[in-house]
Amino acid sequence: MTDAATVRDVAALARLAISDQDIENATAEFNQTLALFDALSSADTTNAAPMINPLDSEQPLRVDRIETLVDRAALMQNAPASEDDYFLVPRVLD
């Protein structure tokens, strides 16, 4: 069982907020999902290597050459706030 404080800590790691009103329900749902995972402990995985990629493929390497797939101006059009070629965020240093 995980308590509300842990769920709040996890939310902070994920940069999400949970209101006081929602925390009880969020914790209950969290525990309901974790209970689903309990079944994993029944599996004997002594000799099982973790499977990260279903094809177990090796990372292919390409020639290290600069290519422009999308131009900068087009990308910047989706920025919520920008100035020249920079993304604007709240002031970090006073």
């Binding site: 995972f37 994993l40 402990s41 599996a43 995985t45 099982a48 290597a49 973790p50 499977m51 990260i52 279903p54």
Partner: peptide, 14 residues
């Protein structure tokens, strides 16, 4: 407990 174990069970399932 969870992520590594699940990756191992994934191997068994595959």
């Amino acid at each position: 407990q969870y992520f590594m174990k699940a990756q191992q069970v994934r191997r068994l399932i595959a």
